[in-house]
Design a protein around this nucleic acid. Structure first.
Lengths: 230, 230
DNA sequence: AGGGAAATCATATGCGGATTGGTTAAATTG
DNA sequence: CAATTTAACCAATCCGCATATGATTTCCCT
């Protein structure tokens, strides 16, 4: 062979050159090992040794069936809701809501458009018109999501959606007594109105505080009798 | 026909009965419309009218290619990172980090175990030992995730992972100048140490404040020259 | 022995057909 | 003629199988 005993060092040099050239072109996926080994004129074993070095250094990343890519790590393309929901409990979900949603309301108070506020007010009306708990929950969900949308920050909206999906998975099956309709003096009506009004008046702190108060009320009703445990 | 002019009311009644029977069996997916219409002895049009009523009421949910299901809504099983990242920008990501991560640090200060803190301190050392920016970023990522893990709240950890994946997708390609190693007086070293120390001392407010300060520094460096626009 | 090439394995992707809710046009019926 | 049923078609999804790819083992040649 040409360079016996080099232990594949030549392959590493060639591969780094190839990688630099490809990185410049903006391409992220490099050819299959079988092609690349022939293209670079090295054995597949040496190529794999060089790839292993670069992988340990964090410059490339490989996965069976997909290929080899340049970049620090495999960016998770999707997040499984059930994976999160499977290892948690309603209390943790509520804690996360108390952290995230008041600040989302604050952002909404800062960035909401007039049509956003109009949509929220319409949802407020629909909330009172709901004749069954199921309808009420649908409109309630919609209202909370409208607030997240009004933040005009798609990252916050995405986080809200994730949290919402986890919540609905965790508390799945906990239905209220069917048939009954939400009482007219349900705390959420006034809570929601306070939140929307604060957003409409661009009262950042007020919106956050109102949302926090509302969620604390929900928490109190959701976990009615909780001993001092934990 | 049997009951002309009933407008499909008979179909609605039959469908409700079927749904109750099926709901009792624990099954969530009901047969295809073509089968169910024949099974119930009603036309597909009337069946669809009845299904539309139940859908508007929130008792069922349907989607093309999947079927019709009982339940309030389609619980998104997975969230696409690229869907979020595609419609956002680094500033929104930074805003979300500033909202979420300080509160995560606060929770970590409350719930971190001794082994959590030991792992963080080891990461602090590794941060200073990094000889290339890529290594530094890997350890930095690890440290921030360790803090999220120390919150002992899997929902917060999941939200952090989502946010992190979005961040890495959005700022993808913005690599620092290769070759250079992080300077010894990089602000992040002291920032990180303050955060970990506050967590170790169970200083809730201090941990949150230190994290907020750190992220503001990162923001200042990430968006170096930003006019007063927006 | 030792290294390289080929075979083999396990996993991921791509593609075509089948399924299903949504929509429109034709047929039937009173 | 009007209303309703029926059929046909559309778009999105799922499923099975072939293919592609990285990982591992085996074999062969020097």
């Amino acid at each position: 062979m040409d360079d016996p005993g080099n232990g594949g060092h030549a392959a590493l040099v060639q591969l780094q050159a190839y990688l630099a050239q490809m990185d410049h072109a903006g391409e992220t996926r490099l050819p299959a090992e079988r092609e690349l080994s022939e293209s670079l004129g090295v054995s597949r074993g040496d190529l794999r040794k060089a790839l292993a070095v670069l992988e340990k250094d964090g410059r490339i990343w490989r996965h069976v069936g997909r290929g080899t890519f340049v970049g620090s790590g495999p960016v998770e393309e999707t997040i499984g809701i059930s994976e999160i929901a499977g290892r948690t409990n309603p209390a943790d979900v509520m804690r996360a809501r108390l952290i995230l949603e008041p600040e989302i309301a604050r952002e909404a108070a800062l960035h909401a458009t007039l049509s956003d506020i109009a949509a929220m007010r319409q949802s407020l009306v629909q909330t009172r018109e709901a004749v069954t708990w199921r309808q009420y929950e649908n409109v309630d969900n919609l209202l909370h999501r409208q607030i997240a949308q009004a933040s005009r920050n798609n990252v916050l909206l995405g986080l809200f959606d994730v949290l919402n999906a986890v919540r609905r998975t965790v508390v799945w099956g906990r239905l209220r007594s069917e048939g009954a309709r939400p009482p007219a003096d349900h705390h959420s009506f006034a809570d929601h109105e306070r939140i929307v009004e604060a957003i409409a008046e661009r009262d950042l702190g007020g919106a956050a505080a109102a949302m926090r108060l509302h969620l604390q009320q929900v928490e109190r009703r959701l976990i009615p009798v909780r001993e001092a445990a934990e």
